[in-house]
Amino acid sequence: MNFALGSIVLALIWAAITASFTLLNLILGWAIAFMALWLIRKNLASPVLFSKARKIVALGALFFYELALSAIRVAFLVLMPNMKAQLKPGFIAFPLTAKSDGEITLLANLITLTPGTLSVDVSKDKKVLYVHALSVTDKEALIKSIADGFESKIIEVFK
């Protein structure tokens, strides 16, 4: 089920990249997708994707909103004449609730593109994610906003 869906999605991406939607090209793309998925067949996740579609869309919407917000905030910060006074950079240890590698990767990528934060590294035991923030006025509030926002949504999607 996951296999079929994945190969169809990959075939559509193939058609988009090669810019022709002829039947022959779609079949070629599907064949290549099938072979690519067959190579990684042991690592495919459990086949519940459709029921999660709404949550995935919600996560995507939240992500785009936060990306726009963060770009605007950085832009305003850069334009301020007294930028140095506004800047309170710092490294923060963010305790991870997410367990699997996939969740941590997604969380780190999303954190990097959201307001004022940039993930730097994960500790050896995968319990702590180190985050660099542009202005640390309230550390606890920042940690709480990440945990309640992205992390809880990601865990819901993966569960």
Partner: peptide, 25 residues
Amino acid sequence: LAAVGILRLPDIYTRMHAASKAGTM
């Protein structure tokens, strides 16, 4: 603005904010 940020911000880590966010946007 990303370019201005790369020029004005004080260190590597803060510059990375400007490059990755404003540049991508």
